[in-house]
């Protein structure tokens, strides 16, 4: 998996089916997508993974919901909250990606959370939807948050994923357009390529060598 759109929300959340979004993603240069809360779909052209989003108000609720995730779920996403919640979320068992950082309060993802995320192999999601759809102060705030996140990523080395969070094929963007949009907050071509490949790393994390027989 060299290029994965880390979350798309097909019908009924949006107006496009998972199959149609898969066709569109393959035409846009992706080789896999993660479908959030959608109907299961299969495609000949690319790999469709299933994701689940946990929206929890407390750490207890988060752990309870993470335990409930079935084996069909490939990735568990958690909506970011305040500082204490985010620090707990990146160390919780089963959590793969922390998302919606741009919606959380300022400094809600700090150096301690960044270090914990790097140690536990948890990635942080960069959602392109607000960059495309927001205007003015809203977009400026999002770009600032992502630039700050990038600074922490360069220092502590936790993974980044990039998602369109598309609810329609009209919200999906190509790999090249993704690079251009990420360049707005200072991400380089190599960093974008690494971020697009992070989902593959999350599914097959690097582990110590084991003697099988």
């Amino acid at each position: 998996m060299h290029a994965t759109d880390a979350s798309v929300c097909p019908y009924p959340a949006g107006n496009s089916s998972a199959g149609r979004m898969a066709i569109e993603a393959s035409e846009l240069g992706f080789d896999s997508i993660v479908v959030i809360d959608g109907e299961p779909a299969c495609s000949d052209t690319l790999c469709i993974l299933r994701g689940m989003v946990i929206r929890a108000s407390s750490v207890k609720d988060l752990l309870k919901q993470a335990q409930r995730a079935g084996p069909e779920i490939d990735l568990i996403f958690v909506d970011a909250g305040d500082l204490a919640f985010n620090r707990a979320a990146v160390t919780a068992r089963g959590v793969s990606v922390l998302r919606s950082i741009y919606r959380s309060p300022k400094n809600a993802f700090d150096h301690v959370a960044a270090r914990a995320a790097a140690e536990r192999g948890v990635a942080v999601d960069i959602n392109l939807y607000p960059i495309v759809h927001y205007r003015g102060a809203g977009r400026q705030k999002v770009l600032h948050r992502y630039a700050d996140l990038l600074l922490l990523h360069r220092r502590y080395g936790f993974g980044l994923t990039i998602s369109s969070n598309a609810r329609s094929i009209l919200d999906q963007r190509s790999v090249r357009e993704t690079e251009r949009l990420c360049a707005l907050f200072g991400m380089t071509h190599e960093e974008v390529a690494a971020a697009l490949a992070t989902v593959g790393t999350l599914l097959r994390p690097a582990r110590p060598v084991r003697v099988i027989a």
Binding site: L28, I131, V132, H133, S168, I169, L170, D171, Q172, R173, S174, R176, E177, R180, L181, A183, L184
Partner: peptide
């Protein structure tokens, strides 16, 4: 051209119709 191509990726509607412009 890079700046304008980036801006094209942020076009979400023409008039009152939802569109995407793929460079």
């Amino acid at each position: 051209e890079d700046a304008i191509a980036t801006a094209l990726a942020t076009v979400t509607a023409v008039g009152d119709r939802a569109v995407a412009l793929r460079t």
